[in-house]
Amino acid sequence: MKVSIIMGAYNTAPTLPVSIESILQQTYKDWELIICDDCSKDNTYEVALSYAKNYSNIRVIRNEKNSRLAYSLNHCLQYAQGEYVARMDADDFCLPDRLAKQVAFLDTHPEFAVVGGGVMLFDGKVVKKTIFNPEEPKKEFLARGVPFFHPTIMMRKSVYDILEGYWVSDRTKRGQDYDMWFRFYAKGFRGYNLQEPLLRYHDSLSDYAKKSSWDMTWGATKTIWLGFRVCKMPLRFYPWVLKPIVSWLLPKKLIYIIHNKKHNGKEN
């Protein structure tokens, strides 16, 4: 098995079939999909099982209690057999050659530990725009935000093992990937972003509402503070630690508008 695709799912029954179908339609075929249901209140688990019954390379597991995304992804990693591990969200849609392009890159570029790519922002009705992060973001980029769009990444399984997966704590209920990138750079790993879109990424005002609690904001602030320390970031970057708090104080609709006007990276 070359590629293990890991997916956490919670109350995503309406979008999960489209997400899974986009994986089934990949031009690259040597993969397994591991879906972890986080005790959904809808029929997400049953939808996932219906695919697992028809496809031997789809596996469905379930948490004993609702434990959030970081825990779900680590649960998936326990079963991953692939040389490479790809991320996927249960409400996103992979472009058909996503896996093929990423496998080809990692096969021919052993110096890179992870490869990501661009995303097509989708509000549930239309694709609004396509955005990218820099080709090879350095650790300083962490002051601005995440250097790789999480649902687009494909990482060497050996690197996931070294990083010990995702950190599970109150502060990483959201932003578990941000926390991982700090540890990634602290270990001296390098990553690359293909300058082409790899998937359609769900991005709407309701998504921002999910991230608006003070607990989430304070957790993100602590993650940045700890991350800056572990990466030995220059002191001039430390004012960026307050970025989550400033964002929390602003109206969510305004943050959503700003996000759609300007983004970390370049616009297509």
Rank of each mutant, 00 (worst) to 15 (best):
P251M: 06
E135A: 14
S4I: 03
T27L: 07
R62I: 14
W248K: 14
L95F: 15
D179Y: 08
A90M: 00
Q25R: 15
T223F: 00
D42G: 08
P134T: 08
F148A: 03
R174G: 03
L249H: 05
Q102H: 03
C36H: 01
Y178D: 03
F112Y: 15
A113F: 00
V85G: 07
W181M: 15
L142T: 01
S204W: 01
K210E: 15
M155D: 04
Y79V: 07
T12V: 14
Q195A: 05
E111V: 04
P151E: 04
N193T: 00
M1L: 07
D170K: 13
D37I: 12
Y185H: 11
K211V: 07
W181E: 13
I5C: 06
L205P: 05
H259L: 09
E164G: 07
D97Y: 00
S19A: 15
Y55N: 12
G188S: 02
S4V: 04
N74K: 00
W218K: 12
A70M: 10
W248N: 12
D97V: 00
N63I: 01
Y208M: 11
A90D: 15
V114C: 14
P147E: 02
G118R: 04
E135D: 09
V119A: 12
A100P: 03
P96C: 02
Y28T: 11
Q195W: 08
G116F: 06
M1G: 02
V241E: 03
